[in-house]
Design a protein around this nucleic acid. Structure first.
Lengths: 213, 213, 213, 213
DNA sequence: GATGAATGAGCCTTCATTCAT
DNA sequence: AATGAATGAAGGCTCATTCAT
């Protein structure tokens, strides 16, 4: 009941009983945002974005549900924030070049497998959204494409790479990335193959590919 | 029989028990089930299972919403029915063996690319669910695994295949399937790469792989 | 937990316990719509549109909240429906013409006062919305404008009306409507004047106006 | 002093108790209060009280949201402050009496129309609340009632007014106020009639009314 | 004193399922 | 057998207020 006698829809004066057993408030926006992002990323990966409620995210992050809307403009904004920060991620320092291209190919395959496995939480989270939204897919494709460019550059350091045209080299690098996806993420995570078996298969295939030179 | 035109298993179970008025009833029920399956498969692929309402499915199929619960025990049963019928699908007739293993490898890659492209609607539909449900992933992994076995069998017809161990051959076949997935589905559909570019990359890679022998 | 192991956001299978103590379902869409309209009109008038929750409307109408969205496209659609049906209302049968224009003026004022009093629930409901939305105001202004035209027509039946120009006659009729609004609605309902006092004032003013001829 | 520039009663109460640093503090607090009142009055009139958030008010006033609770005991207190200051408003200096009562009646109508037009922002703000709260309506009705008394007093200066009883005179004055409301606020602001057309209608009606004497 | 981060109750809406017709 | 009206349990979001800083 407000000033004018009407029932206010929103302003129900918080009664005295709420003063007790209230959680201590902390003021730290940055930490709250990070907690929400972390909680959401985990839940999105585990249950899927569609099955994750803002209630769950807030509970896991230990803060109020309303902050999701306020900080990220809604649940979808939270997803977008996570995706964008992942896309913007800086590349790691490159490994030293092995002596032979065969060695390098094997190493690349192994590295990609590991990399995709490390990113599995992110992939589980975004793949359903990529399928729904072509534009998101295109945005995310920057990640493997940039990696492919890096691989081509590395392979060009070996004289044997001269035997392949630019397009072939590009297809080769893209395929290495793809095999990383396949054996690092797709088969172990999505198809449920045992991870060690996946890695062995990848290593076999790396060895076979290295013979292309 | 393709996914979207497949006979529903439910309709086959039920068709026997209607003794009277059989022709009419069977035709009606079967037709309705097929209409629902077809409508659902299209909508699930386009909008995702999570964003497809039973209302939409019924509207597109031209029948009442309640039938989804009645025939398929709910929306999820409809998805299950579709997935199961796809898994149970009979393999198509194999192509004749080319003269050289190089030719065969190139052909296999191309065939896989085409195959995964043809199945893109199904994949778009199930991938988000596979990520959510390891058991579904394991079930679906039967499909590529059976194909890999077939590929191994075919490659064994060439003497050059003897140079690879059984594990290597298996990894090789699995990788071919994976490249089919990569260039037939993943890159064109999910990452938004132009389909022809994807096919060219796949052909390049097929050529490179064929040199492994 | 659904088919795929994920938690469905919406499809929580209704457990068996709900089968008991469920209200009997009646299938009568028209009656439901009318009940909702009636309940909403009353609540909107009493508490204001902004302070009326769909929960309250549904409870008062004795049906499920979701129907408001389904039938009227939301709470606002319910308001729109009510307003439109009021605007479209057929005019009542006109009273017989009194012998003198003086009598007619007094009668008109009285009639308008009564009319606006009768419509007070509707006015209480729409006025806040009219103030918010100019377009709604313009739409609703059709009601008094049509009434003013009718009044002008009636007055033209008396030779004394010839003493007023068309504009004057129009202003006169509009003022009669306005006095009806003033003493029939505004003062008794909004300013809290005692209704009988309002009516007496209106009668006084009617008498004074009648001397204009 | 106009509504939107009026001194807050709260600020005057508080201004005394700050002994130290008075000038600065008083100026700041008073200025903030005035800024909040001004911002709120504008927003309440434009969007309605119900649709105005404290966030918006604070943003427009250029100060912190929390001050609304602190200074005015919440958003509703802000509205109450505005309304009370308007009700308490001093009457303006009366115009000189024209030679004829006819002239005076025409002048009064015109004056009222202008007056209600000037107050339109205030009316847009309070009308929805008046409809919700009879007590607020009664409080606000002081404003037109006091004006009606003033009009009666003025009319009594003319001998022609003696032809009307006290009640009639009162009804006449109240009707003039009502026509001011009708043509100065209701029709142009709420019904969307063009303002000049409203004024012309009012002038016509003023002329007609003046013939009552 | 002033700020604005944080709270959390409550709102409208959606939608799979049920069941009277 | 088929329909679609009705249900009701969440879900995301808003926003006045509180209170740590």
């Amino acid at each position: 009941m407000n000033l004018l006698g009407g029932h206010s829809r929103v302003s129900q004066q918080r009664s005295a009983k709420n003063k007790k057993n209230r959680t201590l408030r902390v003021r730290n926006r940055g930490a709250r945002e990070r907690a929400l992002i972390e909680a959401a990323a985990k839940l999105f990966a585990d249950q899927g974005y569609e099955h994750t409620t803002t209630r769950e995210i807030a509970a896991k992050a230990g803060c109020a549900e309303g902050l999701i809307s306020r900080y990220f403009k809604g649940e979808s904004g939270l997803l977008r924030t996570i995706v964008e920060s992942q896309i913007a991620q800086k590349p790691s320092t490159p490994a030293p070049l092995p002596a032979s291209i065969q060695e390098e190919v094997r190493r690349l395959v192994e590295e990609e497998v590991q990399h995709l496995w490390d990113d599995r939480e992110f992939l589980k989270m975004v793949i359903p959204q990529m399928i729904l939204s072509p534009s998101l897919g295109r945005e995310i494709s920057q990640i493997p494409d940039r990696r492919a460019v890096k691989i081509v550059e590395r392979l060009r350091n070996y004289k044997e790479a001269a035997g392949l045209s630019s397009d072939e080299l590009n297809a080769f690098a893209t395929s290495i990335i793809g095999l990383g996806f396949l054996f690092g993420f797709w088969r172990p995570v999505t198809l449920g193959q045992e991870r060690e078996a996946s890695k062995r298969m990848a290593a076999s295939m790396g060895a076979i590919l290295s013979r292309a030179f």
